[in-house]
Design a protein around this nucleic acid. Structure first.
Length: 654
DNA sequence: GTAGGGTTAG
């Protein structure tokens, strides 16, 4: 059966096919009954050795069986040795020379032996040896098999260099036969995709006489990796037969290409068609949900994961941790974290970053210590997490320590992202000049990005220094010419310093570039699960008058408990009364008033906002949490604020 | 025997 499927239409393969049909243990006895007793014995021995090889799960056991094989005088049996080599490479062992030894002891290796070793090098490396062996095989006139070519393509894919693979491809086209084989072509496409030679993959795909769901999926992956989701979707729609992997590719692809809405739409379609969902599918959907920030949807995905026991899976679990943190529910993130028994660096990092985002600096650092004590080695992302935590809480010295530990103890070279964290940490704490200095003395091989200068500009917003801001902004405008936030920030810094002439100049720049300030927008999920949007100084919501009544009432109560609007948050040159009016109508305040009307009493109020929240709103929310007795989670474009009983998790430092 | 997987800052 195997031979029939794999060797169809190839001349060379027919010669070797009988070898493959030989040795299934159950058939051996049947064959042997018609032969002499000596052969029967030999066959039985072989059969035993085959079972023994199947049961090998570690190198010493394998070597033990190999010893038996030699003593039984079967050390030249190509079939058994090929089986042994395959088992050896499947054990995920490095090709430490033992496999080669076994191979070299054979006087006349056949196609299967060569292929087994080539496959070993393809899977475990070093991949170039696979090609060397293939050359020797051809020089010895040993006929190749379909397996041989798929192993070679795998080796090429593994080394991410398609050059040798492409030569082999040209050879099999000349040779004929093999280039029609489905399996060979599928591995060929996969190789070209992995080596980023999309055009060659497409050509191979188009030349195939028959394609299966794997060929289609591989090509779709090619589009996904190049960010071409329209083309990927078009191809996907053309598929007659779609399996779970094909669906998952589209879900993950959309998620990876920042199209979370489309990802979840595909997931829902798949779900409604009753197609099975596994851990990989869920990871894609959960990651999309994290980008979208929809807690309700996230809880549904967790329910599906739980039903199938995937919430204990380390990859699904890590994705859940990240998703719940990004959806504003730190408690559920922690719950998901605790469900994972064998946590790895992803699980810990997701939780550390989550805690940092929510302003829980001490727990983030504590968890980092816990992680190290558990023997999990932190990576660059984990350090982003602890550095952010330090930055949000103003722990400058701890941050400096982490920064040097990362290089000295863990030998992780800091990237521009880490420098951005350090600039943020120093700058936020008021060491603006030191932060500037750090940027100027960054190693030359690290290319600066917007994050580094952006952190410096943010520091200038907090602590003044319009002249440093100017330098930072100049770099930012070059790196991110359309980054509207940078212009707004610079204008605000000038406004705070009373440099109104400069404000006018920046506003003029924005006008000339055709950039418009994004209107402030907040949104909240109501009782019925629908999303409600609010715009600054809005009057766009159907229940506007009701909202205004609640807002006015709340404002009065807050004023009685000591609230004084922070007028300097308004960066326009206008009178105090107008400033108060503008502040009152910030979108998050409208969303909060609405939440007090239309959410279940006693539940956590969750509000998201597209821009950074202002100091006045922050104070307003702190006091509102006390007066209303409600817990409020506010997500702005940077991070989360947890307001409870008059206090915010960020300790008013953000 | 071949296709799909999670964490990053202003």
């Amino acid at each position: 059966m195997l031979a029939g499927r794999c060797y169809r239409g190839t001349r060379i393969s027919l010669e070797v096919a009988p070898l493959l049909q030989e040795p299934h243990p159950s058939s051996l006895l049947r064959i042997s009954s018609n032969n002499s007793s000596q052969i029967t014995c030999q066959r039985l021995l072989e059969s035993r050795l085959i079972s023994a090889l199947d049961g090998c799960d570690c190198l010493p056991r394998l070597k033990h069986v190999h010893g038996h094989l030699i003593r039984a005088g079967l050390d030249q049996s190509s079939f058994l040795l090929a089986k042994l080599l395959r088992t050896l490479t499947n054990l995920d062992l490095p090709m430490d020379g033992y496999a080669r030894q076994v191979f070299d002891q054979v006087r006349q290796p056949n196609s299967f032996l060569y292929t087994a070793l080539i496959r070993g090098y393809a899977l475990q490396g070093p991949t170039q040896l696979a090609f060397g062996l293939y050359t020797r095989m051809r020089l010895n006139e040993t006929p190749p098999l379909t397996f041989t070519f798929s192993a070679l393509f795998k080796a090429s894919a593994g080394s991410l260099d398609a050059r040798v693979g492409a030569q082999v491809h040209a050879q099999i086209v000349r040779l004929g036969g093999f280039d029609l084989d489905l399996y060979v072509n599928n591995t060929l496409i996969d190789m070209y995709i992995k080596c980023e030679r999309f055009q060659d993959a497409r050509k191979a795909f188009d030349a195939m006489p028959h394609r299966d769901v794997l060929s289609w999926t591989s090509l779709i992956v090619g589009y996904v990796r190049r960010g071409k989701m329209e083309e990927a979707t078009e191809l996907f729609d053309q598929m007659d037969e779609k399996d779970m992997v094909a669906w998952t590719t589209m879900i993950t692809g959309n998620a990876q290409n920042r199209r979370p809405g489309d990802a979840l739409q595909v997931f829902q379609q798949m779900w409604s068609m009753g197609i099975e969902t596994d851990d990989v599918t869920l990871v894609g959907a959960i990651s999309a949900c994290a980008q979208l920030g929809s807690l309700r949807y996230g809880r549904w995905l967790r329910y599906i994961a739980r039903q199938r026991g995937f919430d204990q899976n380390v990859v699904v679990g890590s994705a859940l941790v990240d998703m719940f943190a990004k959806c504003g529910s730190l408690d559920e993130a922690r719950e998901a974290f605790d469900m994972v028994k064998e946590k790895n660096v992803f699980t810990y990092s997701a939780m550390v970053v989550g805690l940092a985002m929510h302003g829980c600096a001490l727990p983030a650092m504590q968890l980092f210590e816990e992680m190290v004590n558990s023997g999990t080695v932190p990576n660059g992302v984990t350090f982003i997490g602890v550095l952010t935590a330090c930055s949000h809480a103003g722990y400058v010295d701890r941050g400096r320590q982490y920064f040097s530990t990362m290089r000295e103890k863990y030998e992780i070279a800091p990237t521009a992202d880490h420098y951005a964290c350090m600039v943020d940490l120093l700058g936020r704490a008021g060491h603006v000049e030191e932060a500037f200095d750090l940027i100027q003395h960054m190693p030359a091989d690290i290319s600066l990005h917007g994050g580094v200068w952006g952190a410096l500009l943010g520091a200038c917003r907090l602590h003044g220094r319009p002249h440093i801001a100017e330098v930072a902004a100049k770099h930012l405008f070059a790196l991110e010419p359309d980054g509207i936030g940078n212009y707004v920030l610079l204008a605000n810094i000038y406004a705070s310093a009373g440099m109104w002439g400069e404000v006018v100049r920046v506003r003029k720049m924005m006008r000339e570039k055709g950039l418009k300030k994004n209107p402030g927008c907040s949104w909240v999920e109501a009782k019925d699960g629908r999303l409600h949007e609010f715009y600054a100084s809005g009057k766009t919501h159907p229940r506007d008058s009701e909202i205004m009544t609640v807002l006015e009432g709340l404002l009065e109560r807050l004023k009685q408990s000591g609230y004084v609007p922070i007028l300097r948050c308004v960066l326009y040159d206008i009178g105090d009364r107008e400033k108060q009016q503008l502040l009152k109508m910030h979108s998050e305040k409208l969303a909060l008033a609405f939440s007090l009307i239309d959410t279940t009493h006693g539940s956590v109020i969750r509000i998201a906002k597209n821009l950074r929240t202002c100091e006045d709103c922050h104070l307003f929310f702190s006091l509102a949490s006390k007066v209303s007795g409600r817990e409020i989670v506010l997500r702005d474009n940077m991070r989360f604020h947890h307001f409870e009983d008059g206090l915010c998790s960020c300790g008013n430092f953000w």
